[in-house]
């Protein structure tokens, strides 16, 4: 803040100090989180993703936009869907994709994260897609690149700890807009393990930035972050009350692998209270859509009848995810 007071004549400068994702002219340089990202940047990404959806439907599923661009997938944490869709997105843009198997690489020999990055930049990397179990790892890399004057190399956060998963948030926004046209009159409920969910956090920030009027989180006290209301959501512990009149229901995966201590009696007990069944779905609007970031635990947070039913848009989410990631990669590469 001291900077913005002392140099009022340089708004662009202060903006880049405050938001490491944006370059001096306000253009997107890295995608680290949806928190604090201006609504027009989010809308620009969503709008750009629309024409990319049709490329995946062509016989030749490829455009020459990122020919010669080297995209490094740096996955320090397991992922199938996200890594694959990033890889497909980059390949459909004609970029060269290098997947690093971090488990078998130098980090296990003691190399620091930033040394790994410096070595890859020395191999002329243009873009890093980073997933890490530690919140802030992609930010650390982006800040390091900015500080050393190499902000022509772009960083995309593909999920860091419990913090953020911005491309998932964007594809969720894209899916909602695709089926509901607009955010202006929507009631959206996010259900389940919000505590461990970077997907939920990114989506909440995106939806509030785009002025969604009624945003709800539904879950047991033990699986909701402390003071989650401060994000601008209404909290429900009773799922039936929370689902009333919803246009969009976002089910979250119960992340048992991240749980420390007794947060839940059992998966069966969780399903009874917070699992989405046809009977509970009937409380939402008749044209409600059901989303899930995957991987799904059938019978834990969602019943198979719902997951395979006509309200579910879970597989379209995956398809849209490719177009949204193509949009993000192209916008970054062009800035």
């Amino acid at each position: 803040m001291a900077v913005s007071h002392s140099v009022p004549s340089l708004p662009a400068e202060t903006r880049s100090v405050r938001n490491p994702q944006l370059g001096p002219n306000g253009s997107l340089t890295h995608l680290l989180t949806l928190e604090g990202l201006p609504a027009e940047v989010i809308r620009h990404i969503l709008d750009t993703a629309v024409p990319f959806t049709s490329i995946s439907e062509r016989d030749v599923k490829k455009v020459p936009l990122l020919r010669g661009t080297a995209v490094f997938n740096l996955f320090f944490e397991n992922s199938t869907r996200t890594r694959t869709t990033f890889e497909i997105a980059a390949k459909r843009l004609s970029a060269d994709v290098i997947n690093l198997n971090i488990g078998a690489s130098s980090t296990t020999k003691g190399e620091t994260l930033l040394d790994t990055v410096d070595n890859l930049v020395a191999m002329n990397a243009d873009m890093f897609v980073v997933r890490h179990s530690q919140a802030g790892a992609p930010h650390l890399i982006a800040a390091h690149l900015n500080r050393t004057g190499r902000n022509h190399v772009h960083v995309v956060n593909a999920g860091d700890g419990r913090h953020a998963h911005p491309t998932q948030g964007l594809l969720d926004l894209f899916t909602i807009r695709h089926y509901k046209r607009d955010f202006a009159n929507l009631t959206v409920a996010i259900v389940g393990d919000v505590l461990h969910s970077r997907v939920a956090r990114s989506l909440i920030h995106g939806l509030t930035t785009l002025s969604t009027p009624d945003l709800r989180v539904i879950g047991p006290q033990t699986l909701l972050p402390t003071a989650v209301q401060s994000l601008g959501v209404r909290v429900f512990h009773d799922m039936r009350a929370g689902l009333l009149g919803c246009d969009v229901i976002v089910m979250l995966r119960l992340q048992s692998e991240r749980m420390r201590g007794a947060l839940l009696p059992s998966a069966g007990e969780f399903f009874k209270h917070y699992g989405l069944t046809m009977e509970k779905l009937a409380l939402a609007k008749s044209d409600a859509i059901v989303m899930h970031p995957g991987p799904m635990n059938r019978g834990v947070e969602i019943d198979s009848a719902v997951a395979d039913g006509e309200h579910a848009v879970i597989l379209p989410q995956v398809t849209f995810g490719i177009a949204v990631r193509m949009a993000v990669l192209s916008i970054l590469a062009g800035n």
Partner: peptide, 14 residues
């Protein structure tokens, strides 16, 4: 593209 980036509004080829 490398010099100018994407234009703000890209339409769908149909």
């Amino acid at each position: 593209f490398a010099r100018k980036g994407l234009k703000p509004e890209v339409k769908r080829t149909d």
